[in-house]
Structure formats: structure tokens, C-alpha cells
Computed example of a mutant assay.
Amino acid sequence: MIHPLNFDSLLFGYPVGKINVDQSWDEQGFLEEAKTFQLVYIFSQSELKYSSETVRLVDIKATFFKRLDQSADGCSSLERPNGELDQRLVKLAFESGAYSRFKVDERLDNEEFEKLYRLWIQKAWENREILSLPEKEGMVTVSIDGDSGKIGLLAVHPDSRGKGWGKKLVKAAEMQAKREGAQGLYIPTQLDNLPACHLYQSTGYTLSQKEYIYHYWRN
């Protein structure tokens, strides 16, 4: 059953829904139900077989996990931004979504990616979840839910890459998560984002889950 997503629908300006499917995936039944939606997110734990051109694989979501220990330490030069949301942070949020399904699916051509990531960084700023380098060369967002933390956005400015800032941002997020009571940290990314996957694996994270995400787009 496709569930309507009111928030996404209001943000994008057309009907959006989502569905979780399994091996009992019925493509024709889905296509009939999807006629009232413009966009539907399809989540599956395994690859789906389909023939319709309205359905497209847009992401293989890879979630990495690491159990935090008492020795977690971070970069002391990171800060929590104050005042108004700096537009340099908005640009970093866009950088962090370079492999986002909302960016790689070229059928979404009404600034869906920009709308979503601009709102994402705004909410992270309001919730004081952002840690940034002093000159906004990079930033990371970390949220806590119970005894688990999650990195949402992580980006380094193109001019500052290759200096080890990525690892320092991850370590800073670990330290902040540990400080707020988290025992472990999750990092979702795209399997196609090889630099990010290598970064997380090099800092002790292991792949804990893989999920296939498809977009249905009504032509």
C-alpha cells in the first residue's frame, strides 16, 4: 500500500507517496495504485524486477555503524555556528548531497534537491546539530535518538579537500554523540559515493544495512 507523504507533497508541490516492498512485489498492482501520485519512493531490501520506464533505481542506501568507546576524541577547532544560518553552510549542505537520489534523478527538475537540502540544513541549524570548521571549510551534522547517534550531512569545501578534514569531522561527530549519551553512531550514505564509503570504513565503521531505493515518476 502506498502511503501519502503530506510533508513532501507540500514541499514539492505535487502528490508524493512511499511504499516498502518485499519479494511479493506486484509491479502491475503498484502501477495501478500509483496513478494518483506524481512521485513515489519505493524501498526494498533486495533488487526489484520491473519493466515500466516510470520506475527507476536511484539509490542503494548504505548505512555504516560504529560502536563508540570512551576514547572517542575529535577536532578541537570545530564550533557550533551562532546567529543567522550562514549561506556557506547551505552550500556545504548541497555539496554533501552530490550523490543524493533527489539530485541524480534528472526527472526531478523543479529544484526538489535544493528545497530538501536547504530545509535539512535549516532544521539542523535550529536544533544545534551542526559542527563546522572556523572558516566554514567543512561541516557535519549529528543527531541523537536514545543511545544512538546519526550523522546526517557531512561535507568539505572542494578547495579544502585532501587535508584530512573528513576524518576530523567524523571524529568530532563521534565525540559530540558520546557527550550526549550515544553508545553507537550510524552514517547513511549512497553505495555509489565511494569516497564517503572509504572514509567511513577507514575510521572503523562497518556496513550494517543496504537498501534499494527506486523512484516512480508519472510521465
Rank of each mutant, 00 (worst) to 15 (best):
H3I: 09
P4E: 12
P4Y: 12
N6Q: 11
N6E: 13
N6F: 02
F7A: 14
D8I: 13
L11G: 08
G13A: 00
K18I: 01
I19K: 07
S24R: 15
W25I: 11
E27G: 05
F30C: 07
E32I: 05
E32S: 13
A34H: 06
A34D: 07
T36H: 02
L39V: 08
V40F: 06
Y41N: 09
I42N: 09
F43H: 05
L48S: 03
L48Q: 01
L48E: 03
K49H: 11
Y50I: 09
Y50D: 11
S52P: 10
E53T: 09
T54P: 00
V55F: 03
R56Q: 14
L57G: 08
A62V: 02
F65K: 14
F65S: 12
K66N: 14
K66F: 13
R67M: 07
L68H: 04
L68F: 10
G74E: 08
C75G: 10
S76R: 07
L78Q: 01
E79Y: 04
L89R: 07
V90L: 03
L92T: 00
L92C: 00
L92Y: 03
F94S: 03
F94T: 01
S100K: 03
F102M: 12
V104S: 13
E106A: 07
E106L: 10
E106Y: 04
R107W: 01
R107H: 02
D109F: 01
E112D: 11
E112K: 12
F113V: 04
K115G: 03
L116G: 03
Y117R: 06
Y117K: 05
W125D: 09
W125K: 11
L131A: 07
L131R: 06
P134D: 11
P134T: 07
G138W: 00
T141A: 03
I144Q: 15
S148C: 10
S148N: 10
K150M: 15
G152R: 13
H157L: 12
H157Q: 15
S160C: 11
R161Y: 15
G164P: 08
L169V: 01
K171W: 06
A173I: 03
E174C: 03
M175Y: 01
R179H: 07
E180R: 15
G181K: 02
G181L: 04
Q183S: 08
L185V: 05
I187D: 00
P188E: 02
T189F: 01
T189M: 05
Q190E: 05
D192R: 12
A196C: 05
H198Q: 14
Y200V: 10
S202G: 11
Y205K: 07
T206C: 02
S208W: 05
S208K: 12
E211V: 05
Y212N: 08
Y214I: 04
H215T: 06
N219K: 10
N219C: 06
